[in-house]
Nucleic acid binder design. Structure first.
Lengths: 129, 129
DNA sequence: TGAGGACCTTACAAAAATGTAAGTATGAAG
DNA sequence: CTTCATACTTACATTTTTGTAAGGTCCTCA
């Protein structure tokens, strides 16, 4: 899952920040390209691999599998395999995963506010010019 | 500030996600190695370049300058230069930057909860073994 | 005139994240 | 005995982020 050099300055800085700032720690877990969006879908209910894949336009199987694996390792989601053929695998949020909801909402709220603020700023500047 | 290929799949996916998910948009602005920690310090009050640098163990001048520049571009912080020698430059949060506070708190709250949950889980497993 | 401090910038290199293409395993159904 | 669908894995390539090292400017003070 990982091939990080534990001794790199990069890694050292990362763990230092995650140790001293819980926000940075949280970002270390959900702060990448796809995870928040995967969370968004799973927050609506359990889904199987293919369903998630189809929901996330542009994600590759590799990326999806990788992210799901990491999220499982980080106990955000659980994985249930049904002994059928073709295989059926269900992913769903764990309790601690579900607790991300307010965080996600906060993030979205601020994002919306920020976007509006920036767009307003641009408009003002354009008006002046 | 950026040398991203706008046409790369990577970039395409990024903008797609940021367009469809405000949380992803927010992460695009604050979700990197140093920004949240820079925010943390500036949230306590205005600071000058060197002060921030000294607060953030391990950050290089390049990284600090780069991140501050991006944060200024994204209107999270403002930059004030005093015509003195040696130079004095003060960074401080903008209103929209200050509004990150509850987001940051949420993130930290969840982070702490998650860390505890994971550690508890490890303890349980150890007890069983 | 030349050293010094604060605040950057530049060219380059290493590391990490993401994407591409092609496999693998399973067992049922045709 | 070949094809099919699902859920992955693997080897590799590209892109992006982060770090390193060395400047560069400004004016002041000695």
């Amino acid at each position: 899952m990982k091939k990080t050099k534990l001794s790199s300055t990069n890694q050292l800085n990362k763990t230092y920040l995650e140790d001293t700032c819980m926000g940075a720690y949280a970002l270390g877990i959900i702060g990448n390209r796809w995870k928040l969006s995967i969370f968004f879908y799973l927050n609506k209910g359990p889904m199987r691999f293919t369903e998630i894949k189809q929901s996330l336009q542009g994600i590759t199987e590799r990326m999806l599998a990788l992210n799901l694996k990491e999220m499982e390792r980080d106990q955000l989601i659980s994985r249930t395999v049904f002994a059928e053929v073709p295989a059926r695998v269900i992913y769903e949020l764990t309790p601690i995963g579900r607790e991300l909801t307010p965080v996600w909402e906060m993030l979205g709220l601020w994002g919306r506010k920020h976007k509006q603020a920036v767009e307003a700023e641009v408009t003002v500047k354009a008006a002046v010019v």
